[in-house]
């Protein structure tokens, strides 16, 4: 970072303290929290709709793959335990992604709603961070709701009290990862391309994220294993699987945390760059 540049010769400098607004002590943090409060209020008002929106897809996946196929004998009895952690990961990542991508596309191009927040007294990048944090909250709720649903549909879910905290941390990481991917989609994809982009991105994302299969078992489909390794969701699925069903072969849990965290940093940097480009010209 360079030091603030010297003013050009002849350019006058302000004297005395800058004129202050009515609430000069108000920090950017509190503005960020006020924006978060607005988002929480709006989501809270339509919480049942939000829940229906986020749990329907994992619920059906769980029911058909975990319950129906197993009962019909097409899937092995242990498959439920492999599938459940993967679907928790799927709910976290996908909900996080959808909670940033679509709103950003709409707010930047059609509604311009984001302008009032970009004109609030906080750095532009903080508006993007707030979006990601809020989307991750939605992702976390969606992932957490999978637990009671799992108990309801499957009768029981793999669970160990000793890894509960680590599971929660991985769910947070997964939600943030999804939100960061959505930040990239929402700021780089032009609005007229968002439909096709969603179709081209979401389906591969859902089916290469090791959600429905343990990654190490792909040894004999090498190319698909490589493709899956590129999907950030794989490390969330595998991490949760390792913590909830350690007996199933999985990528080392510590490696899942590290790779997921690295992915998060990289995706956030790319997303923030795109957000700044859209917000300022």
């Amino acid at each position: 970072m360079s030091a603030p540049s010297e003013p050009a010769a002849g350019v006058p400098q302000s004297v005395g303290p800058p004129t202050v607004g009515p609430v000069a002590h108000w920090g950017p943090w509190r503005t960020g929290l006020a924006i978060l409060r607005r988002d929480l209020m709006v989501t809270g008002r339509e919480f049942p709709i939000f829940l229906a929106q986020v749990i329907l897809q994992p619920l059906f996946l769980l029911f058909v793959f975990g319950k129906v196929l197993t009962e019909l004998g097409y899937a092995q009895p242990g498959y439920q335990e492999v599938l459940f952690p993967g679907l928790v990961a799927l709910a976290a990542v996908l909900t996080g992604l959808q909670s940033t991508a679509l709103p950003l596309v709409i707010e930047f191009s059609y509604s311009n709603e984001i302008e009032d927040r970009l004109l609030a007294p906080l750095p532009v990048g903080a508006v993007a961070v707030e979006k990601v944090v809020f989307a991750a909250m939605r992702g976390f709720v969606a992932a957490a709701v999978m637990f009671p649903i799992g108990v309801w549909i499957l009768g029981s879910i793999p669970w160990q009290a000793s890894t509960a905290v680590a599971v929660a941390v991985m769910m947070v990481l997964g939600s943030l990862l999804g939100a960061a991917m959505g930040l990239i989609l929402g700021t780089y994809v032009p609005p007229n391309r968002i439909n096709v982009t969603f179709a081209l991105v979401l389906t591969p994302l859902i089916f290469t994220g090791s959600s429905q299969y343990p990654w190490p078992s792909l040894d004999h489909i090498r190319w698909f294993q490589v493709v899956s390794a590129l999907n950030p969701m794989t490390y969330v699925s595998e991490g949760l699987r390792g913590l909830m069903v350690p007996s199933v072969p999985h990528i080392a849990t510590w490696a899942c945390f590290v790779v997921a965290a690295v992915y998060l940093v990289v995706l956030m940097l790319v997303g923030m760059y795109g957000f700044n480009r859209r917000a300022l010209s």
């Binding site: 009515p22 609430v23 503005t31 006020a34 409060r37 607005r38 709006v42 709603e113 302008e115 009032d116």
Partner: peptide
């Protein structure tokens, strides 16, 4: 162009804007 918050009422638009500014 209209950039009001469509998820908020008229009064809430004013109030939330003020909350961003620490009023």
């Amino acid at each position: 162009q209209n950039n009001l918050d469509r998820s908020l009422s008229v009064r809430q638009n004013l109030i939330y804007h003020a909350s961003y500014h620490g009023v």
